[in-house]
Amino acid sequence: MIRIEIIANQSVQEEIIKNLEAVIPDFCYSLIPLVYGRGKKSYKLGSTTWPETNFILLAYCADSVEQDIQTVIEYEKKKFPDEGIKIFVMHEKNPELTN
């Protein structure tokens, strides 16, 4: 089991989700649609000074879909290089200890 966290500008949210669902038909996730913060290049505060915002997508998936997810995100990063798309993958530490 893996935990996926995808953080990106809200402008690419719909496309990322659409492509993940197309590649992984039973892809289940939770979405935090409005995220404020600061990245390497700018702030995302939803204000008149810093109008952009991000989203976070969280998913728990089988190890077998990790490469498919990585491939979708690599594609999106190439298509939208300035939208701050990041992915973090956490692997289950001791799968034999879980029920």
Rank of each mutant, 00 (worst) to 15 (best):
E96F: 00
E66I: 14
M1H: 02
L58H: 12
S64E: 12
Y60V: 15
Y29W: 04
E66A: 12
L34Q: 10
N9M: 01
V89W: 08
K18A: 05
I24V: 06
C28R: 14
K93A: 07
V65S: 11
S42E: 13
Y29K: 03
E92V: 12
K40Y: 06
T53H: 00
Q10Y: 06
L58M: 13
E15C: 01
R3G: 04
V23G: 06
T53W: 00
F27V: 04
N19R: 13
Q13L: 11
E14Q: 12
T98R: 08
Q70F: 03
T53D: 04
E21S: 11
A59R: 06
K40L: 10
S11E: 09
K78V: 14
D68E: 10
M90V: 15
N99V: 07
T71F: 09
V65G: 10
W50N: 12
F88I: 11
L97Y: 09
P95F: 07
N19E: 10
E15Q: 05
A8Y: 03
I7P: 04
R38D: 03
P25S: 06
V12K: 01
N94A: 14
E83H: 03
I7G: 05
E14H: 06
V72H: 02
L58N: 11
E76G: 02
S30V: 03
K79Q: 14
K93M: 08
V23P: 04
K78N: 15
D68K: 13
V72N: 01
I69R: 02
D63A: 03
S11Y: 05
I24K: 02
I24C: 05
N99R: 13
G37N: 03
K77L: 15
G39M: 02
K40W: 02
I2A: 09
Y60T: 14
Y75Q: 14
V65D: 13
I69T: 00
G46S: 12
C28N: 14
P25C: 11
L45W: 07
L57P: 00
C28Y: 08
I2W: 11
G84Y: 02
E74G: 03
K41D: 13
N19T: 06
V12F: 04
Q10N: 09
Q10F: 07
I85P: 00
N54K: 00
